[in-house]
Design a binder for these strands. Structure first.
Lengths: 149, 149
DNA sequence: CTACATTAAATCGTGCGCTATTAAATAGCA
DNA sequence: TGCTATTTAATAGCGCACGATTTAATGTAG
């Protein structure tokens, strides 16, 4: 009953899983970014951190984490790599020494100019219309919010 | 022009990025699965491999990789963990000794019964209608195909 | 002022996912 | 036959992501 060649009808059929569609689309997307970001010297998660800092500089580790849904265990080593790449500096806050403020360097600010070209290249790689992409983006935001623990 | 408080209009604005929507939705989804799969003793990628094998047992490493868009560098250690958990066996093919066939054990087949409950739990966690989920899944499949290198 | 709780970041160990490389088996061809 | 090219897994090293713990600073009650 649960086996044999009815596998395409089973709720466990791989191609019916939203999770797998999400997983494999994300992997495919990150491959596109990897290629584009290589010339900027950034990985994909590093690029996301830079987006956050380009929007607002000087945020704390937890502030960045709140924005990206990541915690310090992920961010601390990542930020250290960006620091040793010369893109930012981590400095303990004077008012509350538990906090670490993350501040872009001149070089970090400058990298934004190169990054400006990335979104267009990605849009191109997707071969989707802006409308399609916006709809998908909104659907995904919606899903994430509903999944929030 | 490219700086200051027009960050919400910039093409680099985090919340406008499809990539970030995809990334964060995928992270949120995997957290849901992590919790559900813990009682099965599986991680999320391991669960995907089991789905592939429940659909068709005895596939080669590259066959599984082709299905999941992963290569042997990812799969080999993952399969070894599943093997040492007693869910499958890896055995070199007689006809072509370059290939390794992956065969479920009794225990591996049996785990499917427990897994049957997972999709429903996930659907529940998403708080989305089946129609919404199917549409999203198809959009994601579409995106992945267009991104294919 | 001390004792306890809370908060922020860092640290540790595990498991992907990728690039690049290696090793072994097979296929194709002179 | 002998040689090269291709195919299939495995391996090494790096960078996330996470659960769990640790350290240090701050807040608060007695």
């Amino acid at each position: 009953m649960t086996d044999g060649n009815d596998s395409q009808q089973s709720l466990l059929a791989l191609d019916r899983q939203v999770c797998f569609a999400l997983y494999s689309a994300q992997l495919a997307m990150s491959k596109v970014y990897r290629k584009l970001l290589r010339e900027l010297g950034l990985t994909y998660p590093q690029y996301l951190v830079m987006l956050v800092l380009w929007e607002q500089d000087g945020q704390t580790v937890s502030g960045i984490g709140h924005r990206l849904f990541l915690d310090s265990a992920t961010l601390t080593p990542l930020l250290k790599r960006l620091e040793s790449a010369g893109l930012l500096q981590r400095q303990r806050s004077r008012e509350d020494e538990r906090q670490v403020a993350v501040v872009l360097t001149e070089q970090g600010h400058k990298l934004r100019e190169q990054a400006e070209a990335v979104p267009e290249s990605v849009m191109c790689a997707t071969q989707c219309s802006p409308d399609e992409l916006e709809r998908l983006r909104d659907d995904l935001h919606n899903l994430r919010e509903r999944l929030a623990t």
